[in-house]
Amino acid sequence: MIKIQGLYKSFGDLEVLKGIDNEIKQKEIVCVIGPSGSGKSTFLRCINLLEEVTAGEIFIDGIKVNDEKTDINDIRTEVGMVFQQFNLFPHMRVLENITLAPKKIRKMNPKDADELARQLLEKVGLSDKAKAYPEQLSGGQQQRVAIARALAMKPKIMLFDEPTSALDPEMVKEVLDVMKQLALEGMTMVVVTHEMGFAREMGDRVLFLDQGLLVEEGKPDQLFNHPKHERTKAFLSKVL
């Protein structure tokens, strides 16, 4: 579903991703772990071209993403993204946050969009918050709305960039639960996370990134319990 070949990315002189190859299959849950600054976010952001790719190729459903001829907005409607800082639109109510893109981009009529939004809010357990403004919600609630907002475009793939890192501990679970539900429904997901518990339980595969390189990958059990590389061992000994 996502095919990444020789992905290379630099910011000026700073090489952040130094040649990454990977293929993510439909319905696969891939967790990306690694130390701070290793390039996890950049990797994720290259997939939907929030960062311009310096070299290499990314294909989604066989379509080359980083191609002049590809309409990147079309690709992005198929790839939902959830950010660490939620990034809800503060000037809109929860319902409008969710319906805006379906109405503007998918040209969905307002009634259907509202109906869809209400279904999604129910799914993330926030049916009573449709009329609230983001600032009236807790962090965990905001993040769940952000997930609903991304799902409203009916994406085939969801990207999560440390979705629980900005949350107080007691709110982490409510967000992870929504993500688990999504995973069980068969969504293809790439999740950058520090939640090793989530990676272990839900991940089909875990990628360990360090200094811009994909150092090691494997099934969670294999990578967490029997890491092959020294760098993986060193990282895991710090976070587990």
Binding site: N48, N73, M81, F89, L100, K104, I105
Partner: peptide
């Protein structure tokens, strides 16, 4: 993050600028 969130939903930059 506001522009990025809007763009990640598939909004063209003009639409994102106007509405967000």
């Amino acid at each position: 993050g506001q522009m990025e969130a809007a763009r990640s939903l598939g909004m063209p930059s003009g639409v994102a600028m106007r509405t967000i």
